[in-house]
Write a protein that binds this DNA or RNA. Sequence first.
DNA 1: CCCTTTCATTTGAAATTTCAAGCCAAAGAC
DNA 2: GTCTTTGGCTTGAAATTTCAAATGAAAGGG
Lengths: 155, 155
Amino acid sequence: MSDHEEPRWLSAEELAAWRRFMKLLQRLPGALDGQLQRDSRLSFIEYHVLAGLTDQPGRRMRMSELAVLANVELSRLSHLVSRLEKRGFVTREPDPANGRYMHAILTDAGHAYLAEAAPGHVAQVRKLFIDVLDPDELRTLHRSADKVIARIEEV
Amino acid sequence: MSDHEEPRWLSAEELAAWRRFMKLLQRLPGALDGQLQRDSRLSFIEYHVLAGLTDQPGRRMRMSELAVLANVELSRLSHLVSRLEKRGFVTREPDPANGRYMHAILTDAGHAYLAEAAPGHVAQVRKLFIDVLDPDELRTLHRSADKVIARIEEV
DNA sequence: CCCTTTCATTTGAAATTTCAAGCCAAAGAC
DNA sequence: GTCTTTGGCTTGAAATTTCAAATGAAAGGG
């Protein structure tokens, strides 16, 4: 049973802003995914898994850390890495120091593939997001995102 | 083959803002979905399909219009409506005026179920989004969303 | 009218994601 | 040491989404 507290509705402006933002939430990922898929046959998340690995020393990272970085559940990451492995972009290897951790490692092929994909993706991010906002708006957006994420992460 | 134009990278602030916003893009839908799923066994999109129908005269709408409203592809909507139909929340009926349009119609049960689900969802939207932002930030967000969506929708 | 074309939607299969075990290495308990 | 317990990851099955036809009604053409 849901407890019926005060159903405090949204004001007209709040509702309008929320609706608009919701639309953005649904459209922007699709638009970014579309470009990556078309030009590099990568999903947004696959891209960020590869990108996450490139930045690490040894281009390797523990699965669970990678999951946090890419904002996905471990199970999903595991399946996804299996697919990237099949394509030759990533390898798996148990952590030599502690056998119950597993490392995902970016291969040379994976690194090269990412390097091919990156410029197009960055161009798309610029085109759809960065370049349409002025610096002030971008700062506000940054701050707002901080606040909302902080609230979400409050236990 | 991808044409290697100038790979104009992002500045430090641009990158930081983008990263943060990206995280929001992945976290907020999940947090909203979570509440709806837990309390009402509805996905975010299912909720908005039902909500979209409630606002229509006769609580009915053409599938293709509903798809635009809910920001989903027609095929996905069709499967999704089939599931809602199985649950008794929606019915389908060809448009009496033009047999190749199909109407999705909210049933009384669907309407009642939505009414049960709405307060909790709105509370969550308030809690995670509206109430953490001040009016100025909300306005800026609204405007920014407008701009980005406009850019995405430019052919 | 019949024949093609177009449009709105559905359908089934393939790919992906979610969910609920399952597995195995390390850490503790005795 | 052996025996549980815990933690990190994988796995297979179920649910959902995506993709590529397929269907069926209306519109156009001759």
